[in-house]
Design a protein around this nucleic acid. Structure first.
Length: 466
RNA sequence: GCCCCCAUCGUCUAGCGGCCUAGGACGCUGCCCUCUCACGGCAGAAACACCGGUUCGAGUCCGGUUGGGGGCGCCA
């Protein structure tokens, strides 16, 4: 049997990080088994759905590199089919009309809570004569769920999970306005789409009992279920906006690489021995449900950044230039000039090993785009005291006689100057760095000088020597 | 409140009864490399929540306690 998985987000916001991981697991599982990965938008609640949110999901998945098979399915568009299934259930006596008012239901909940029982519907219309129906009230349709025995879910991650049917009430299938509920729609769609494996967050584990009852009532085969633990914030509570649970586009804007995010998300709740660095190809080869852990994992930005640094170091220079350029241009609010763009390309091999994010690369190459006289930060200014400037004067003079302007030649001149002054190279390099970049941290200074070019370098030195 | 799930270093995890004086990674500390910052290398501190069983033997199996999480909508 060929594997078919699906990712089924509700379009109520962006593609958040937890959803991204769920999508990744489904995608990897499908790829690993040579199956299909489908996308279904759970938009049965029209009031909460909007096109922007749907677009954000598409773009988030695309950026993450999780391509789905075929067109995305709109759950809302399948409402007729959902109603058809309810008609079958009604005809078979497995569903019934309920005329309770919202106030009545609320009262029921309050009473159950007060008596320490599970909160739920008491089944008062379950066996009531239809002729009792109040006039002018549209009924909701509920499943006539079994009252005795247990409902059992065989979960690929959580194992066998059992709940007594006495704890499960008769869920609503069709609202009074005739629209299908999520619980019904998921089951019908998963069945109709031929989904073989439902991999989702374990906040759906208890829902699975109720969905199982629908499968049973319809006599349908159930898919395999795998409920993966939720991602938690640093404080151990379910990840929320309060923790900075951002959309994936926010991680893109922070300068994270999709490959790094995939690797990080994969390792959050899944492991394969001691392997930490698992590029996507390797992940497809290894991924299976038995490696998924049962306990929730906390989201750790520091570790994500570390992994991102690894993938930045591994990346092609030209790819990094392409990825960095828009962020850099956004930061300086203008397009790069030709020399600046060339400088970015030239400096990339030196900066990529010093950055954990693309944004850090932007910081490291800022010296390329500033205009004279450049601003000096506090530490840089401190380097340019009388001593520092005396040293620079000496170097500046030596540089005057330098014919070529290659990194190697520059280095030779500066080293000679340091020897002549009888100081360590650092004593010369730091004032140079301060004068040329305005900071005390930068790529190797001889590379900076070579890329800045003779004229710009000497001009920046003169700026601080007047 | 009721139901369900979970529990190894600060964090992510390896461990599927003896190979564990509990391994790896991130982070942290020290040293080396070094023009700064990184990278890289070396060394180090750091965990089986607790209590009972089962067993010749338990981090690994069972029960309970505690702690954490999730669910309980005419939301998804």
């Amino acid at each position: 049997m060929s594997v078919v998985t699906r990712f089924a987000p509700s379009p109520t916001g962006y593609l958040h990080i937890g959803g991204a991981r769920t999508a990744l697991f489904n995608w990897l599982f499908a790829k690993h088994h040579g199956g299909q990965f489908l996308l279904r938008i759970e938009d049965t609640d029209r009031a909460r759905s909007n096109d922007d949110a749907v677009r954000a999901i598409y773009e988030g998945l695309k950026w993450l590199g999780l391509d789905w098979d075929g067109d995305a399915v709109s759950q809302y568009a399948r409402a007729d089919r959902h109603r058809e299934v309810v008609e079958q259930l009604l005809a078979a006596g497995d569903a019934y009309r309920c005329y309770c008012t919202p106030a009545e239901l609320q009262e029921m909940r309050d009473k159950a809570r007060a008596e320490g029982r599970r909160i739920g519907y008491d089944g008062r219309w379950r066996d009531r004569d239809p002729s009792d129906a109040p006039a002018g009230v549209d009924p909701a349709i509920r499943l006539k769920a079994p009252k005795d025995g247990d409902t059992v879910v065989e979960d690929k991650v959580q194992g066998t999970v059992t709940a007594p049917n006495s704890e499960l009430d008769d869920m609503i299938l069709l609202r009074a306005d005739g629209s299908p509920t999520y619980m019904l729609a998921v089951v019908v769609d998963d069945h109709d789409l031929g989904i073989t494996h439902v991999i989702r967050g374990d906040d759906h584990l208890t829902n699975t009992f109720r969905q199982t009852q629908i499968y049973n009532a319809m006599g349908w085969d159930k898919p395999s279920f795998a409920h993966i633990p939720l991602i938690h914030g640093p404080d151990g509570a379910k990840l929320s906006k309060r923790h900075g649970a951002l959309g994936v586009e926010a991680y893109r804007d922070m300068g994270l690489l999709p490959e790094a995010l995939r690797n990080y998300l994969l390792r959050l709740g899944w492991g394969h021995g001691d392997e930490e660095i698992i590029p996507t190809e390797r992940a497809i080869e290894l991924f299976d449900l038995d490696g998924v852990g049962r306990s929730p994992a906390r989201f750790d930005m520091v570790k994500l950044n570390n992994l991102n640094g690894h993938y930045i170091r591994e990346a092609d220079d030209s790819d990094l230039v392409d990825a960095t350029r828009p962020l850099l241009e956004n930061a300086i609010e203008r397009v790069l000039t030709e020399p600046e763009a060339a400088g970015l390309v030239a400096i990339m091999p030196m900066v990529k090993q010093r950055a954990k994010t693309l944004l850090e690369i932007v910081d490291l190459v800022a010296f390329l785009t500033v205009s004279r006289p450049i601003n000096l930060d506090e530490k840089a200014a401190a380097q340019l005291d009388d001593d520092g400037r005396a040293t620079l004067r000496h170097v500046r003079t030596a540089l005057d006689d330098l014919g070529s302007w290659s990194g190697g030649d520059i280095e030779a001149v500066v080293r000679t100057a340091a020897e002549a002054l009888d100081v360590k190279l650092g004593k010369v390099a730091q004032p140079l760095r301060a004068a040329l970049t305005g900071t005390t941290v930068s790529p190797p200074i001889f590379d900076v000088m070579a890329i800045l070019g003779r004229d710009e370098t000497l001009a920046r030195l003169d700026d601080v020597l007047v």
